[in-house]
Design a protein around this nucleic acid. Sequence first.
RNA 1: GCCGGGAUGGCGGAAUUGGUAGACGCACGGGACUCAAAAUCCCGCGGUGGCGACACCAUGAGAGUUCGAUUCUCUCUCCCGGCACCA
Length: 859
Amino acid sequence: MAMQQKYDPHSIEREAQQYWDASGAFRAREAPGKPKYYCLSMFPYPSGKLHMGHVRNYTIGDVLTRYHRMNGRNVLQPMGWDAFGLPAENAAIANGVPPARWTYENIAYMKGQLKSLGFAIDWSRELATCQPAYYRWNQWLFLKMLEKGLVYKKTGVVNWDPVDRTVLANEQVIDGRGWRTGAVIEKREIPMYYMAITRYAEELLAALDTLPGWPERVKTMQANWIGKSYGVRFAFPYELDGRQERLRVFTTRADTIMGVTFAALAAEHPLAAFAARGNPKLAAFIEECKRGSVMEADLATIEKKGMPTGLSVTHPLTGQPVPVWVGNYVLMAYGEGAVMGVPAHDERDFHFAKQYGLPIPQVIDARGAGDGAFTTDRWQPWYESKDGVCIHSGKYDGLRYNEAVDAIAADLNAKGLGDKQVLWRLRDWGISRQRYWGCPIPIIHCGGCGDVPVPDADLPVVLPEDCVPDGTGNPLAKRPDFVNTTCPKCGKPAQRETDTMDTFVDSSWYYIRFACPDNARAMADERVAYWLPVDQYIGGIEHAILHLLYSRFWTKVMRDLGLVKLDEPFSDLLTQGMVLNDIYFRKADTGRVTYYNPAEVETRAEGGAILKADGQPVEAGGIGTMSKSKNNGVDPQELIDRYGADIARFFMMFTSPPEDTLVWSDAGVEGAARFLRRLWNYAVRFERGGNPPQPSAALQLRKATRFEIHSVLKQANYDLGRHQLNTVASAAMKILNALDRLLEADNEVEKEGLKILLRLLAPITPHISHYLWRELKFGEDVLAAPWPEHDPAALIADEIELVVQVNGRKRGDVRVPRDADSKAIETIVLADPAVQRHVSGQAIKKVVVVPGRLVNVVV
RNA sequence: GCCGGGAUGGCGGAAUUGGUAGACGCACGGGACUCAAAAUCCCGCGGUGGCGACACCAUGAGAGUUCGAUUCUCUCUCCCGGCACCA
């Protein structure tokens, strides 16, 4: 077969993909003894079609997969679908289509898209989390955890839409109102199941040190999230109806305890509820605190308000009465749901005290940590410094932070009122969701027996797939065929739990299941030991905390249940930067918000933007992550249809480093297309026997070309090692440029260079590399070729160029022999006319010689 | 608000450990080829001044350390991600 003269991406891509399919090229098999490489990209939510973030994510994963395969590793790159979730229910509300059908149709379409991009995926391991064969193990492990006490039930706070009478996700609450109804949202307490992740807090924190392959920023974020703080937990005693009671608080600043002038309760605190009885004003205030969303970001930015309860407690050390307030900024979920108020040394307490006229006595002197004397007129940052000593604190006067905390904790302990304690910011994981499209929680509620686990033999509890949610209430609760059952214990009629699990449960162990997706009898088997841990995990930085933390937790739970022998699931982590795009929306009078895709919007020269469909203005919402909810995704299909997979992949890799945020623009994709066409044309000329001979200067040009190719290759291999793939793409361009300049029919250098180039490109543009490698008879399959390494001999030059600086400014360059010593270099440099001109008679203070790089003359 | 990250030409980005700022591309301008266009090839391309050699300015803003700072330290501005029910 003759080589095509013109580069036609679509035909060669089809051919290459057929070859891979037919030969089962990406089918991964366990090969004990052979070093494995498990490369995993975060599986997609089947939202409808791929967006650019997916293409970026999966191209990075595919590049690394193919690179390691060419380096001799036994690779596994699986793919699946994070198939449960809210958008399927939203689609049902909008279009009346059952979430199951919508989801499966999306999966089919997106799978076709992934295949057209030529990813080296082992599709035989494909799974979807909405399949009973998968989620039965969610249920099974849930029940195992329940047995071990790692799952328990308690109340939790949710967003309640009083009009639709339904629980809303945080995302569905906009400015404190329901997204569909515009109704003001209320906080509601309902019973939920929790996973006791806090029992693993210490290990989750400590084990971060065993993950050198993780980005520092992710480990820092996780450590801060887990939030280990050392402090003192103590109680304010008080008397209520003749009983001795205690109000417990936690503080990291026990050294300031003598400055306490009030205590503040969260609105949900039981003592607040007690005080509100017979106090309508307080009851109203507590109700007010309960309006709005449950999001911490909202809570943290609201205006700080408070109201006295009329109650007071006793200071544990001074015995003085301390008034008790309710504060809307106190979090029930953190610590004890109550805090001590030290206005002089805590910024929030300071403003609170100013607002409500509470005393602000200074008890810490941190001279040197800030300027200005202590004044209650305005807050100064040094008030919060731990580098001070206690004052106005009686027996603690003069003590430093650590000494004061020790002494105060000891005194509290002696009174039986408190002691030092570790506090975690991490909270247990509430997994109950009042939604239809998720994994059913395998519990049966029986009037006589209480909450009864579904027996193993009855698993899975299968979710009916024909429901069409309408946005009101809980859809499963409306299904008598699902709800009504019999109690496994007593056999009497009983009701199934209608809550489903958080979708983070589904994604917390799919990477384990990929090792054994076909095992119907066990959650995990011995194949897990071969493939796990994941050698390279790749996904968006937005998952830096929750998904990764839950996955780490889940792995440790499975380990402790004897299911796997694995401490950490992901050895190396690459956090891909987000792909952003403009956001446009309209807000109706009802408060309901509609988002418009930037493709449907036209920006006007005079500012502002309009919707193309109706010519009316839309509001600009800045830029943000491409997402279904903001409707600002870009469909990569157009790019693939027009240019083919290789050009799309090359462009994606070339346009920015994997870890950087990328604001989407297709400017530059022409450059990628041009490059691959040039490569093709070069290969065609090569096959014909190279360029016409041009003997003059050939030897030197040949040497210079080899030098260029091998130094670029050396750099490219370094860049691959640090996952900087954009410069690897640049390197390929540089090699082609160097080869193109070699205008002589020197087949040896051309052939060497082209073989390097095609292998270097094989992970990024696998189709064209596959085709040309075979057509040029370099071998049968480029995937089987060894990875290219640079030839050190090509990099030895007789002379090296040094940059010459005078006072740190570049003033020229000199060529010196490769082995010249500092003394010789100095002599050459000082004789240089440009240097003499700039030195112009001034005294030379010193000469800095950086070997192989530069010389700096300081005058 | 808290935690994490970022800012370099008109644009995407490069600069391995503090050592030539702007590699490689895009866009743009000029030229070659062509009846013409596309494609392709060649040249130019941070700013200011100068015919030019060259000089000065320049890596979000301001300060500091250093012979030398895009790189290290501090302060600030803006943007992005996360904040536990989006996934």
